[in-house]
């Protein structure tokens, strides 16, 4: 068999044999156009083993996907903010970064009793709060003249503001039904900042017989809650901190004193 040298490189040459097959051979000082009889075929490494190795990139991508999926699930299970309320039952409602309620817990025996059997899954925090208030009334924990202490445990002033507004409807509803005193506390870090006391009072003309009736003319006005600036995180930055005293001492007294029989 004769081989025609077609292309020459340092290590190898390309030759055409008389059968018409193009082959790579070791270059033994060949020149293009030479016809040779004895050649040495180029040695090639065994092809890379396939099998598991070929799917390594796929496994890596899958592992990264699983990692992020697991990480996302983990992050969703972390409590970022909480709302606590204390009547006699004390209950804590926890939400995650997506604002989903991920847990409620009774902080005392009555709290545990109040939430027993309650399904919070898929509900917003204001709905959970509202429904637990209703349960508290039904179970006799919340009645006329009581104080509801609400505490927001969050470092996010915007979240506090939003949730404060979200539970307003419930607070108005409570005010309509019962004469209750509501205090709202904002916890920033380790430092507790007392927000202005919000007192939602009922019309003193209501008596037990009128309970449940709504009379627009006599519906008491809810004293508007002071707004919390979204960028306020420290005591000194809260506008309402000083305003609260003004609110309580002057505005409140002036506007509502006629409704009180103190």
């Amino acid at each position: 068999m004769r081989y025609l040298i077609l292309e020459v490189h340092t290590l190898y040459a390309i030759a055409l044999d008389q059968d018409g097959t193009f082959i790579k051979i070791y270059n033994k000082d060949y020149q293009v156009g030479m016809e040779v009889e004895s050649i040495e075929l180029i040695k090639e490494a065994a092809p890379k083993k396939k099998g598991l190795r070929s799917i390594y990139p796929l496994i890596a991508v899958f592992a990264v996907f699983i990692f992020f999926f697991a990480f996302d699930i983990y992050m969703d299970s972390i409590v970022t903010d909480s709302l606590l309320f204390r009547i006699n039952p004390s209950v804590k409602i926890d939400v995650n970064r997506d604002d989903d309620v991920i847990g409620i817990s009774g902080l005392n025996d009555d709290g545990a009793y109040l939430i027993d059997g309650y399904d919070y899954d898929g509900k917003d925090i204001d709905i959970v709060f509202d429904e637990l208030m209703d349960r508290a009334i039904d179970l006799g924990y919340l009645y006329q003249g009581q104080t509801i202490a609400i505490e927001f445990a969050s470092n996010d002033a915007t979240w506090i503001k939003e949730k404060r507004e979200a539970i307003d409807d419930t607070l108005i509803h409570l005010k309509d039904d019962l004469e209750v005193k509501i205090t709202i506390t904002d916890q920033s870090g380790h430092e507790e900042i007392i927000m202005p006391e919000i007192v939602i009072e009922s019309d003193s003309s209501y008596d037990d017989d009128d309970y449940g009736d709504i009379d627009d003319a006599t519906t008491p006005q809810v004293t508007p809650a002071p707004t919390i600036s979204p960028d306020t995180t420290k005591d000194s930055e809260y506008e309402y901190s000083d305003a609260s005293s003004n609110y309580a001492d002057s505005q409140y007294d002036e506007e509502n004193s006629s409704n009180y029989d103190d």
């Binding site: 055409l16 008389q18 059968d19």
Partner: peptide, 13 residues
């Protein structure tokens, strides 16, 4: 000429 066997339909020896 080098490939004459193939082009003629035969196989080189």
């Amino acid at each position: 000429g080098h490939l004459w066997r193939v082009l003629k339909g035969g196989t080189a020896v």
